[in-house]
Lab assay of single mutants.
Amino acid sequence: MATKAVCVLKGDGPVQGIINFEQKESNGPVKVWGSIKGLTEGLHGFHVHEFGDNTAGCTSAGPHFNPLSRKHGGPKDEERHVGDLGNVTADKDGVADVSIEDSVISLSGDHCIIGRTLVVHEKADDLGKGGNEESTKTGNAGSRLACGVIGIAQ
Rank of each mutant, 00 (worst) to 15 (best):
G38V: 08
I105N: 03
A141N: 01
I150W: 02
F51W: 12
N20Y: 15
G38R: 06
V149A: 06
D102F: 15
S135R: 00
P29S: 10
V98L: 10
L145F: 04
L68T: 11
A2T: 09
V30I: 12
G52V: 00
G74K: 04
T138N: 09
G130F: 09
E22D: 10
D53F: 00
A141V: 03
D91E: 12
S35P: 10
G74V: 03
V119Y: 00
H44R: 04
D84L: 02
T40V: 13
G34V: 09
S69N: 04
G130C: 06
N54R: 09
D102Q: 08
K71L: 12
D110N: 14
S99W: 08
G86R: 02
V30F: 10
G28W: 06
I18A: 11
H72F: 00
K4C: 13
V6C: 13
F46A: 11
F51R: 03
V95T: 05
D77F: 11
D126Q: 04
I36T: 10
E78W: 06
E22M: 14
K137F: 06
G94Y: 06
N140V: 06
R116Q: 00
H111I: 14
V6A: 11
S106F: 07
D77I: 06
V6F: 10
V88F: 07
V30Y: 03
S26P: 04
K123S: 11
G128K: 00
D12S: 13
L39C: 07
N54C: 06
S26Q: 15
V119C: 00
S60W: 00
I36V: 15
G45F: 03
H44S: 07
D97E: 11
K4Y: 09
D110E: 09
P29M: 15
W33H: 10
D125F: 02
D77V: 15
K92S: 13
K10S: 14
E79C: 13
T3R: 09
H72R: 02
H49L: 00
K129G: 06
I19E: 00
R80Y: 01
E41W: 12
I114G: 04
I36W: 03
S108F: 15
F65M: 12
I150N: 04
T59I: 11
T59C: 05
C147G: 02
F21S: 02
G13Y: 10
S35R: 12
C7Q: 02
I18M: 07
E101D: 12
T40L: 11
I105W: 03
V15W: 10
F21V: 04
I150R: 02
A61E: 01
S103Y: 14
P67I: 15
F46P: 02
